[in-house]
């Protein structure tokens, strides 16, 4: 199934994947003909395990190079410069074995911020993430929700244009999930493009401006979230929303 609808979006696409193919051991894991992500609100990727969501996200972020095809950001192929303007948060937060503040300092220092500026930025970020007072605590001793909040703060520390999130709330309780969603929406309002994977339809309804539904390594359907939830065009979309198993 390679006739894919290009996301009918509102602005010029900020990300585009064209003819993207990844094959391993003779099995086609990813096969995306043309996917353009535009709009200013969050784009949420839905689909069953093994649908290729994480793989596609890593391709869009430049962590994985596809066997074929290309990914562009604002028309430019993804390279070091493009990746500097992106950030990614993983399902399990990968925190350095340092204090909370040192985790944030690590990225700010790499961007060449002076000591005073870093300190002020860290204080602001910690306050934003509700982690004030925990700056000297070992990052790896934080709770799951706090750890994911720190990972998001670290990703946001350098004001990325695009923030990728790979199921950031899959292991969190409702309260911690709400905190994360608040942070994501706040970042989106500030102009950061959010591209996120979730298995939670409720979360997709709450956050999504656009939806990309994946199945078997391909894009089954993509478009504005209200269209998808009101009148899904694909069979996979209809089954997904009806609560059926999409394999």
């Amino acid at each position: 199934m390679r006739d894919l609808p290009i996301l009918e979006s509102h602005d010029r696409p900020f990300l585009r994947a064209e003819d993207l193919v990844i094959t391993r051991n003779g099995r086609r894991l990813l096969d995306v003909a043309d996917l353009a992500l535009g709009g200013t609100g969050p784009t949420l990727f839905l689909g069953p395990n093994g649908a290729g969501k994480s793989l596609l996200l890593r391709c869009l972020h430049g962590l994985i190079v596809a066997d074929r095809g290309r990914v562009t950001q604002d028309g430019q192929p993804i390279g070091a410069e493009q990746r500097r303007r992106q950030a990614m948060v993983f399902q399990t937060p990968v925190l350095l074995r340092r204090s909370v503040a040192a985790n944030l300092d690590y990225v700010l220092k790499r961007r060449g911020l002076a000591r005073g500026a870093r300190r002020a930025r860290i204080a602001g970020l910690l306050e934003e993430g509700g982690l004030s007072g925990k700056d000297r605590q070992a990052a790896r001793s934080l709770s799951g929700g706090e750890a994911q909040r720190l990972a998001i703060l670290r990703a946001l520390a350098c004001d990325p244009e695009i923030l990728f999130l790979d199921e950031p709330t899959s292991a969190l309780d409702p309260a911690a999930t709400q905190d994360i969603e608040t942070m994501i929406l706040r970042a989106a309002r500030r102009g950061t493009r959010i591209v996120m994977i979730t298995h939670d339809i409720g979360q997709a309804r709450r956050l999504a401006h656009d939806i990309v539904l994946m199945q078997g390594g391909t894009v089954a359907e993509s478009g504005p979230a209200h269209d998808f939830f009101d009148d899904p065009q694909s069979q996979a979309g209809r089954r997904f929303l009806a609560g059926g198993l999409v394999l």
């Binding site: 962590l63 990746r83 500097r84 950030a87 993983f90």
Partner: peptide
């Protein structure tokens, strides 16, 4: 194995990741 993807995402090259790995270990 734990850090590689995250460090790449943060723009840290393989060579530049060595001091980070040594310090964190």
């Amino acid at each position: 194995a734990e850090y590689a993807e995250q460090l790449r995402s943060l723009g840290v090259s393989r060579l530049a990741s060595v001091p980070t790995l040594l310090w964190d270990g």
